[in-house]
Design a protein around this nucleic acid. Structure first.
Lengths: 340, 340
DNA sequence: CGAATTACTGTTTGCGCTAACAGAATGGTT
DNA sequence: AACCATTCTGTTAGCGCAAACAGTAATTCG
């Protein structure tokens, strides 16, 4: 393939090697404009022989077009986001657009920096998780001149387009389902991260529905750090030791919920008879555990796909999609909730 | 913050707004060269007021420096890779470098395209998972003029730098450990993907060690698609139904292994007495399952960190790191392997 | 006090490419 | 033969920024 080590090959090198102008080479390599079959072949041969790789930096500057879409998410170690990313990638596959990822570690200041970095590459669009941002970040997104889609959450005021679910409603619906199943002494286990706005909104909706039924949490147990089975186990044990009367534990996510379930089964607790459990996210990876955990699908596949569609449509100027899409989180009844 | 909608602010706009030359603005914004405190303040104020975001495309073209590091991995839906990415990000945090990710879906042709795309942005370095590539991809990496680190695997010939573990050795070591524990009727459960070269190498090493002990697999069960508990359960059930004499199942990864474990426990099979189980990757997320699965740590944190270090050192010209690093996969004995 | 140094700011040039336009070659039509 | 349309190729200019160099003013020093 490549023969030359002079690692700064330019259009000029290819044009000299093939005996045509730089412009013609450019046209061939971009499939733009008419070029005779013979010339095309010569150019392609030369490019391949030299191992030429076009310089998109220069191309982007000259054409004022950058086929990148910035995607800003809180973290990669949370199941949810890799899923969404995968779906966004798939959604952009048929377009000339390419996603570029950045993570904010659930920190709005970092998020602001990441957005700034992304915008400094003048992408064709931006997809950002969540509706909470610093003022500066919001201003940048408002003025960047490209489509911005805020995803995952719809409880708030988007800067531009918005695709997600209502986490408040998700919490409320889950609470009502649990109450309808007859549980009354309910505990919460969730992250202590104030920056997980969506978990906070679910909790808020949940508590609101409880309040409407004249009920309050028996207790709330918080944790810091990542979510895994072990943490769920330990916390469930602690909760049940301190408040044995509890008959349901609502968990802020599926990993914790599954850990709690594993503890209960091992401790010989009747699930869902004596104690019910529910999580959030509908992580299908967990299918195959001894009991299917009651959960709620966050529609992350749909969200990723819709966000990709909106950005693509707007960036490529092919008509405008509806700009606000709210999906309805689907209850996954599972086997850790009495059905009656 | 921003006031103007004219979304194409340039250095000139800031320079006019602050009454200095473009060059001085550029210097202020990059903290390069001496600028008086007064001028600096004026420029910063103007930039902030206008909502100016520098154009890195232009900056990169002019300076011939792009502070991006391309990272090419097979997939995001595999635990392992988000982990490595996170570690690479962390490793680059203290440098001016920023990672940019792309996925190949375990397809070398796609990988070639992704590498081509990445190189067309003229990054400061490239980190690629695996040692298997198309000839064209290898040629591009050889001639791109920036540090290239192939990660995860060391069984093969790297183009440039290389950090990883020997999967062959990992398989061999695991087999020996299993044999030493007295198991003799061994089955394999793994992906059918011929493109998962590392899993194939582990299998190869494993079989070699078995052969040295005069043993062959009782059976090999393959599956396609993603790895989850359910699949592990189903396959374990199938294996034990067809070959009840099997006393150990070696699984190509932890998810499958954990699924198999869940099946066995539910079926009342004595683990590890009657049947032993092992996986691969040492996924700590799984801690908290009823039994700790025997596994092998793939050193993905160390690999990510080392790759980041090498790229940073080479790209920033701060001396050269050792170019080939092999980590030793650590056995995680777990509770699904007899200890004797 | 003049020269040398330092501190700061400006000018010119070009990175590698593409948009826009201009021109040449070819073929068909009247 | 003159004309036009079509097909192909080349020329010019400039995208927004930073490197290199060129000042100018303020300060230091012998």
């Amino acid at each position: 393939m490549a023969e030359d080590d002079k690692s700064h090959l330019t259009l000029r090198d290819v044009s000299e090697a093939s005996g045509v102008s730089e412009m013609t080479v450019s046209r061939v390599l971009r499939n733009r404009g008419d070029v005779s079959a013979k010339t095309r072949a010569r150019v392609l041969e030369a490019a391949r022989r030299l191992g030429y790789v076009p310089n998109k930096i220069a191309g982007a500057l000259a054409s004022n077009r950058v086929n990148l879409v910035g995607v800003v998410i809180p973290s990669l170690s949370n199941f949810v986001f890799p899923d969404v990313l995968t779906e966004i990638s798939r959604g952009l596959e048929e377009t000339p657009l390419q996603p570029v990822f950045g993570t904010s570690h659930y920190d709005l200041e970092i998020e602001e920096k990441v957005i700034y970095e992304m915008l400094s590459w003048r992408p064709s669009g931006l997809i950002v998780a969540g509706l909470e941002h610093t003022d500066a970040a919001r201003a940048m997104m408002r003025n960047c001149g490209v489509p911005v889609v805020e995803i995952m959450d719809v409880d708030g005021s988007p800067v531009d387009a918005n695709v997600g679910i209502s986490h408040r409603r998700a919490g409320r619906d889950m609470a009502r389902t649990i109450l309808a199943a007859g549980y009354r002494r309910i505990a919460y286990m969730g992250t202590v991260k104030a920056e997980d706005y969506r978990a906070a909104k679910r909790l808020e909706g949940f508590e609101q529905a409880l309040a409407e039924a004249g009920i309050r949490f028996e207790m709330r147990e918080h944790y810091a750090g990542g979510s895994d089975f072990r943490k769920g186990r330990e916390m469930a044990e602690a909760v049940l030791a301190r408040a044995p009367e509890v008959d349901f534990i609502y968990c802020s996510n599926d990993m914790i919920g599954a850990g709690a379930m594993l503890h209960c089964l091992e401790a010989g607790i009747d699930v869902p008879g004596r104690l019910g459990l529910a999580g959030f996210n509908g992580i299908d990876l967990l299918e195959g555990l001894p009991r299917r955990l009651t959960s709620m699908d966050a529609c992350r596949a749909e969200i990723g796909a819709a966000a990709a569609r909106i950005v693509a449509a707007r960036a490529l100027g092919e008509g405008d999609e509806p700009q606000r899409i709210e999906f309805a989180p689907r209850l996954i009844h599972g086997e850790t909730l009495r059905s009656r």
